[in-house]
Amino acid sequence: MTIKIVDLFSGAGGLTFGFKNNISNGFFVKDNRFEFVFANEYDPFAAASFRENFSDIPMLEDDISKLDIDYFKKNKLDIENVDLIIGGPPCQSFSTVGKRQYDNRAKMYREYRRLLSIIKPKMFIFENVLGLLTMKNDNGIPVIDDVIKSFQSIQEFGDVLGYTVHKEVLNAQDFGVPQSRERVFLVGIRKDLVLSTDWEYPTPLIGKELVTVSDAISDLPKLANNEQKTNYKSKPKTEYQSLMRGSEKRLRDHISANHGHRIMKIMEAVIEGEGKDYINAQVEAGKLPKELFLTSGYRNTYGRLWWNKPSTTITNNLSTPSSLRCIHPKQDRALTPREGARLQSFPDSFKFIGPRTRINTQIGNAVPPLLSLALADSIYNFYTNNFKK
């Protein structure tokens, strides 16, 4: 049984990865249970990364608003009998970090819904940030209510079909990812389908300790400010590191940012688990020079991660201490793209295309692959119980 998938707002392919791979004997292996009709991504660097890692999936690098029946016919894409659409529209507008705006990016779920009305998949998976639960639209209505209601009935596009929508908040750390990352997932099931079982979200791993930052990155070589290393200096130290490294011999994207003198002094002073407030308290106590006093940023900015805990949420600013907690627990520098990828559960074999800042964006915006694997298993089990072919 093969499940046909369309992948929207794919990014570099974090969500895609879980439907293309599985784990066997401690290694990632190819999964043939799913077949991708096409993927769509507008950002050229993310699209290039997607092509690099999923060369067998047609990538439509174009504005999603251009995708319609004529577009699919022109590109000879068979959208008949698609089983599943996956994807998460741009989430920055919903994020609780920074300025929240109900702008065009926040309304991109309407394009997702429009394609549901054209392709009519049996199911969809819609992913977004936790801020979607508290953001309000122009009429003061919670955006999440607007989104769910719009999926329940898509008559706006002249289609009588709608979806029964199941909402759940999943934390990546409960699925083997070394990062506390809560995201909203909506799973929709077409209302006209006769079901023999109910949808169930993947169950968090029970009885297993959370994977920590140390478990994830302690095998990677030390770096100074503005330094890069391309060779592993030690063997994997944990089961997680072995999974991430696989058979890779070359270390990619392990390069530290070039921090200025003031930022270096701040990073040298901040201790594990502390951040902006700690630095300011040290200045006020006369233990640090006044020029290090921080007048902007949130409480977790200029923050050092904990070594023996999962990381806090990785974002596209994972190498910028002034933006969030991203200072290495044991070294006086911010995370490298490869460390960010490890904390997101991207294997070391995954190749990102673009300059460092654009790679960080691809990593920070992604669904963690290990969480995606759990979702893929739940989808497949649901399909085999309800839609046997």
Results as ranks from 00 to 15, higher is better:
Val184Pro: 02
Phe185Asn: 02
Phe185Val: 03
Leu186Gly: 04
Gly188Glu: 04
Ile189His: 01
Arg190Asp: 02
Lys191Ser: 15
Lys191His: 01
Asp192Arg: 09
Leu193Met: 13
Val194Cys: 03
Val194Gly: 11
Val194Arg: 09
Thr197Gly: 06
Trp199His: 06
Trp199Val: 02
Trp199Arg: 02
Glu200Tyr: 09
Tyr201Asp: 02
Thr203Cys: 04
Thr203Pro: 06
Pro204Tyr: 03
Pro204Met: 03
Leu205Gln: 01
Ile206Leu: 13
Gly207Met: 02
Gly207Leu: 03
Leu210His: 13
Leu210Glu: 03
Thr212Phe: 10
Asp215Asn: 12
Asp215Leu: 07
Ser218Asp: 10
Leu220Asp: 08
Pro221Met: 04
Pro221Phe: 09
Ala224Glu: 13
Asn226Pro: 06
Asn226Trp: 00
Glu227Lys: 10
Thr230Glu: 11
Tyr232Pro: 01
Tyr232Asp: 01
Lys233Arg: 15
Lys233His: 14
Ser234Asp: 11
Pro236Lys: 00
Thr238Val: 03
Ser242Tyr: 03
Ser242Val: 10
Leu243Asn: 06
Met244Ile: 05
Arg245Pro: 06
Gly246Phe: 00
Glu248Thr: 11
Lys249Arg: 15
Lys249Ile: 05
Leu251Val: 01
Arg252Lys: 15
His254Trp: 01
Ser256Leu: 11
Ala257Asp: 05
Asn258Cys: 04
His259Gln: 02
His259Ile: 03
His259Val: 07
Gly260Val: 09
Arg262Leu: 04
Met264Thr: 15
Met264Gly: 14
Lys265Thr: 00
Met267Asn: 06
